[in-house]
Write a protein that binds this DNA or RNA. Structure first.
Lengths: 114, 114
DNA sequence: ACAATATTTAACCATTCAGTTAATATTTCA
DNA sequence: TGAAATATTAACTGAATGGTTAAATATTGT
């Protein structure tokens, strides 16, 4: 059930969905509470939640609940670990000692092109 | 010149653009070399590069170059640091001792539903 | 000056996306 | 049983997105 990085980034591209993640980061919440946090109709939020769910960023909570009408969503961990790792890899571009060399090489090389 | 996290995620939502970042992560490259790496016309790549530039993920290299027709692009650091930090914050949802408590509370609480 | 090269901008088109309202489950509770 | 509450799916619409080809801009080299 691993979510691809591309799916994760596509799911997070919409600002509303990113804010939903920030809310779920505090604690799992039912769809209605999430919809109420935005000036947005329930169906619109429902679709955002579906995107997040299909892409594997959240899951519907199956735990026993006092009201079965509520659908409580919680974050899944894997996509965020993967995103974290990728961002760290990209950052390695600068932390490498290589970067200093790259700067130097870019400024002095003459015929080294592709 | 700080790029917002929302801009960063929007720029990375497209798989082509994410692959461009992966290529630039190795070393800065001219637009033509990037276009050649995908089965895609030069104008299409040019637009992807424009998105990445406008959103602040890459910059055109101003260093003295042997051929002024080439536009070499390189990654900017800040957006990736920010993305890394945000993903780490989301992950804290699990590494917190709180998480254990949350699981417990979810399973046992009865009337705690805001 | 002129042809070739590198890249972008312009104009166009098909698809995707995010929002809305209306209709459809499902569960709760009076 | 039946109205209220929670949430989703369906159908529609306008805006944004990503690709294409043609035209324009700037630089290089004969």
């Amino acid at each position: 059930m691993a979510t691809s990085l591309d799916d994760t980034l596509a799911a997070l591209a919409d600002p509303t969905r990113r804010r939903v993640v920030d809310l779920l980061r505090v604690r799992p919440r039912p769809a209605g509470e999430l919809a109420a946090s935005f000036r947005m109709s329930a169906p619109a939020m429902s679709r955002h939640l579906r995107v997040l769910r299909v892409k594997g960023l959240i899951e519907e909570e199956r735990a026993s609940r006092e009201d079965a009408r509520l659908r409580v969503y919680r974050l899944r961990r894997q996509p965020f670990v993967q995103l974290h790792n990728w961002a760290a890899e990209v950052e390695a571009f600068w932390s490498d000692q290589l970067e200093g060399f790259r700067e130097y090489a870019e400024g002095t090389a003459k015929g080294r092109r592709q």
